[in-house]
Amino acid sequence: MRTAVGVLVLASLAALFALPSVLSAYYITLVLPAVAYAIALLGFNLLFGYTGLLSFGHALYVAVGAYGAAVLSSKLGIKSFELVLLLSGAAAVAAAIPVALLSVRYEKIFFGILTLAFGMLFHSFLFKFYDITGGDTGIRVLRPSLFGNEFKDLDKTAFLVGPFYYYCVGLLAVLGFVMWRIVHSPFGLHLVASRENRRKSEYLGVRVRFFRLIAFSISAFYCAVGGAILAINTGQADPELAYWTHSGELVFMAVLGGFANFFGPLVGAFTFIFLKSELMGITQFWRFWLGLTLIVIVVLFPRGLVGLGQDLWTRLHRQ
């Protein structure tokens, strides 16, 4: 089974690397946010899928990553994308720790509401503090250099669908591998144990709050990396990135793909971005159809698209 998964992952990565030679530039600019969300959801699902804590405010850390990229590039003149990722990620972890210290004391709806409240607090900060954040108009995000190369001969689109795309797909592979190791490590097993039965795992010596704090911080780092990629693709960091509806989209993507599976949220991210884009082009009632899709998934396929695929595969295998 592991071999099959490995082959599937390698084939998917090869397909992602080959996409620019198959798809038009527009579709590659759509794959970029899907990659960004896939990275963010790897972190989000460490908390949701593996720890059992559903955050309704994780757009906060996506926004920290986006604003980090904006401030570093526009205000401080830092062009290195590697530095932007590290500093934005560090800022997200710094922002996550106090939130996590309070939030991980609670579970279920109380955890969800607390994270939502912190998310909206940050949104209000971005919206109200004009001089620092640019208010409703946000801050420009300038094009970064990749490994010291600025690619000045490329226009923005060529940069995005060329070197930046390959860089981000590579980043997804690396961060995906790291997350795979995390969830399959003793630390990951501790998280799962605390999800299944907090009392029993505490009795067995699992430091539940501490491990949840670590998981929260890791998830914030991943979300910030995703946010930085999103902001560079858009060219702007704006307060809507921290709004609760954006947090809702993260939950949507995780549920759509299937949060019980490691790859589910990644599938959800790609499906959501392309589904939304196509629906927006077809009908002005795209929100209705997206909502209907979520209802169908939750009611009929609670394990998401990956779960559905697994069921189909099992059925075929039996036959």
């Binding site: 527009y26 759509l30 409703d136 108009t137 946000g138 689109t157 702007q236 809507e240 884009s277 082009g281």
Partner: peptide
């Protein structure tokens, strides 16, 4: 974010000669 994706679709995919519109300042500045 999403409106810029729409702009890219119009320019890169639909190959329009001109794009018009936008009401929100937040969108127009980006």
């Amino acid at each position: 974010k999403d409106s810029i994706e729409r702009l890219r679709k119009l320019v890169l995919q639909d190959k329009v000669d001109c794009v018009q519109g936008i009401v929100s300042s937040g969108v127009s500045l980006a």
